[in-house]
C-alpha cells in the first residue's frame, strides 16, 4: 500500500487498531491461562532441580508485546497489548498478583525501544528477536534479580539472565513473528499492513 512509503512514524490509531489489539491481547491472556493446566505442571517438574532454567519460558509472557508492535506498527502498541494481557492474567488468577503489571511494563518498554530505534518501519524476525531480548534484559536486570532472586550468587544470576535472553529472542521474538505471519495468512488481518503482506505472500 502506498501509504507505507511515508517516512513519518504513524501515531494516529484507527478504531480497528485499538479494538483488535485489545481483543487479541485478551485472547492471548486467556490462552496463556489455558496453558497453565497443560504446560505448567510439566515445566515445574523439569525445572525444579535447577530453577534458573525455568527462565527459558519467560518469552511466552513477552509475546503480546512483540505481537502488538508487529501488528499495529505504532508507538505504544507493545505497551498496550502487554498491559492488557497482564490484566487478564490478573483477573483469571496468576502467580504474582498485581505486580505482574510492573513486569509487563518493563518488558513492553524493552520492545518499544527496539522498534523505535528502527523507527517503527522494520518488522523482520531480527527486529522482533532484538525486541524480545531487550525486553528480557530489562525484566530480569531491573526487576527479577531484585525481587525474586536477590540471593543467588552472581554466576547463577548470570545463567538466569542468559536463559531469559535466549527465550526473549526465540520464544517472544520468533513466536510473535511467526504468529502474526500465520494469522495474516488466514486473511483475518487484512485490515492491517502486516496482514496484507502475509496474505499476499
Amino acid at each position: 500500500m502506498s501509504n507505507n512509503v511515508s517516512n513519518k512514524i504513524k501515531v494516529n490509531w484507527r478504531g480497528i487498531d485499538l479494538v483488535t489489539a485489545a481483543i487479541l491481547a485478551v485472547a492471548l491472556g486467556v490462552a496463556f491461562w489455558g496453558f497453565d493446566t497443560l504446560v505448567y505442571p510439566f515445566l515445574g517438574l523439569i525445572t525444579a532441580g535447577f530453577p534458573p532454567v525455568g527462565e527459558l519460558v519467560l518469552g511466552i509472557w513477552i509475546i503480546p508485546a512483540v505481537a502488538g508492535a508487529l501488528l499495529v506498527r505504532r508507538p505504544g502498541a507493545a505497551i498496550y497489548m502487554e498491559l492488557i494481557a497482564a490484566n487478564v492474567e490478573l483477573l483469571l488468577g496468576n502467580t504474582w498478583g498485581v505486580t505482574v503489571l510492573v513486569s509487563a511494563l518493563l518488558q513492553a518498554i524493552g520492545v518499544e525501544i527496539i522498534f523505535l530505534i528502527f523507527r517503527y518501519r522494520r518488522f523482520t524476525f531480527g527486529v522482533a528477536a532484538l525486541g524480545g531480548m531487550l525486553s528480557a534484559i530489562l525484566e530480569i536486570c531491573l526487576y527479577e534479580w531484585w525481587s525474586y532472586v536477590p540471593d543467588y550468587t552472581p554466576l547463577f544470576k548470570a545463567i538466569f539472565l542468559v536463559c531469559g535472553v535466549i527465550s526473549g529472542a526465540f520464544v517472544a521474538g520468533g513466536g510473535a513473528f511467526w504468529l502474526i505471519r500465520g494469522l495474516g495468512k488466514t486473511g483475518a488481518l487484512n485490515a492491517f499492513a502486516a496482514g496484507r503482506e502475509a496474505s499476499a505472500k
Partner: peptide, 16 residues
C-alpha cells in the same frame, strides 16, 4: 490457541 486467536480477530473486526 491459533483457532482462538483467529476467532478473536474476526470478532474484533465486527466489534470495531
Amino acid at each position: 490457541t491459533f483457532t482462538l486467536l483467529v476467532q478473536a480477530i474476526r470478532s474484533a473486526g465486527t466489534t470495531a
